[in-house]
Design a protein around this nucleic acid. Sequence first.
DNA 1: GGGGGCGAACTCG
DNA 2: TTCCACGAGTTCGCCCCC
Length: 619
Amino acid sequence: MEPKSEGEDRPWQSYHTAYTNAKAGMEGVDKEKVHKVIYEMSKGSKYFENEQRKEAFIKQKIENLRQQRAKLTDKDIAHFQKIAEKKIVQLEASRDLTKTWLHTDMDAFYAAVEILDNPSLKGKPLAVGGMSMICTASYEARKFGVRAAMPGFIARKLCPDLIFVPTNFDKYTHFSELTRKVFCRYDPNFIASSLDEAYLNVTEVCSERHLSGEEVATELRSAIYDETGLTCSVGVAPNRMLAKVCSDINKPNGQFILPNDRGAVMIFVSSLPIRKIGGIGKVTEHMLRDVLGITTCEDMLKNSALLCALLSDLSSDFFLSVGLGLGGTHTPEHRMRKSISCERTFASTSDTTLLFQKLADIAENLSSDMQKENLWGKNLTLKLKTSSFEVRTRAVSLQKYISSKEEILTHASKLLKAELPLSLRLMGLRMSQFRDEDKHSPVDPTQKTLSEFILSGSSLFKAYETQDMPSENSGDFLLLEDKNLCELDAAREKEHRCITSEPESSCKREELGDSNIANDTYEASLGNANGEIRWINDYICSECGIELPYGFDEERREHADYHLAQFLQQEEKAHVAQDKVYHKMLHRSLSSRKKQKASSPGGKFIPIDAFFTKGKKNM
DNA sequence: GGGGGCGAACTCG
DNA sequence: TTCCACGAGTTCGCCCCC
């Protein structure tokens, strides 16, 4: 690790956003040149400024951790050394070398599919994606430093002849399905971690057919090529963590086999850079390197006492297991979706009407996705990205499970309203805490149908391999226990008493002010337009059937906003003047209760080093 | 003190 | 010319309530 000058003559070297992890096919790239281009194209932008802020914050956290380390006495170190040794013995006892895991990774998958579809692209630098972001780059493009997750305009600067092809998930899904049919022949319970990656437990195949892991890998790669015309790379190892690392070694169109032998594993791991491990990203790498001098997996064991002294139990266990070359060896029985979300980036705007319209679109998308899977959620999270790239999330736990766009928008609007005024470039909604009965439907990625994948528009069911801990918490993947129905009923009863889970203040009459009058005026203003709401039996919305009891004036008004927004959109389409209604809404919006969160944008600091901070209970 | 809710960060493809 | 995505998972700290 050469000490890098961050002087004024080479300012780009301090910009760590790009190239912290070399991708396959980028070995010959002039990294300094690429880094400089990215720096030049980024500097001065709001994105760049935000990255600088984030980096400064990480530096501060590294410094804090260094100080914590400096405070440790010899006695402390000796104490934690004992703890570390005990942990290592326990981890070592969990080592399982009886399984053979195979990780397959399609080579530049999206790009390869596009080339297959249009052979004239072969041999040319190709990027799948658009100007804002590219998903995959062909190996020819990677030679120029172009890579996935790079904005298109920077990629074009690096490679002026770069050909852009828009993403077409239908195509990728089709080819993904073909590969999965092959996987099934080797492991019917294979774990798909994305459209182009999968883990296969080939222990049984090896034993039944008297084949080595290497032979299975060769055969499988050949079968994939025959079925799809695409190449893939394969890693074979005793566990998933190592198999994943191995599949990257001889990429593209290659394989690497790590024998099921403790000695071989330990040698393999000894010089393995920590960044190659799934779960260790840019920040973790910096932390471990700058605070503890850890750069290889072997260093994890050498610094085991410090890891235990400075980090949480969970973190130190993970890092020690990495040092021992341990990883997941069991196939989780069931995996189910934990959340579903939808987010959209748009041109920065502070136009309230526009923001609420976009929120309505997102709510509609999310609701539609939820209904396709019959999901009902109880936890709603609003994600905001300001024009300066600051990300905020605001969540609310609801008293009942919801799924309709009206209900989602009602609660989402409330969350958004509390944050305004604000200039935003992204909004997103996420639902989680699903109803138990929905959790019983299997959502194993391997069982997801083609149409579901196409409809969802993305690789929804990634089996995120968490830390691939040897002591797998299978409970993470198992069906959760049924909740008592009475509990649900009680919750619904509570819901009728107070429609939100916010502090009771939101139900106070005083805060409703002249809402009744405003409400009347507002609804009257709609006249006989489509946005008009009547409350059937005094609590059921005539438009959509949502139930809002009398007295929940604010909620009713917000709900009416939704229908009004719908109406406005229709009006807009028909080129009808909407100023009058808009001003009514704006007036109401301004006069409505303004909820200010205690955490101001700049006042609340984020525990970036959470991963490294030792919890009190561990001290 | 434990558990749940919330907000944020990190990671992956 | 264009100017840094999206969806999903996890952990952690803090706060509040029981």
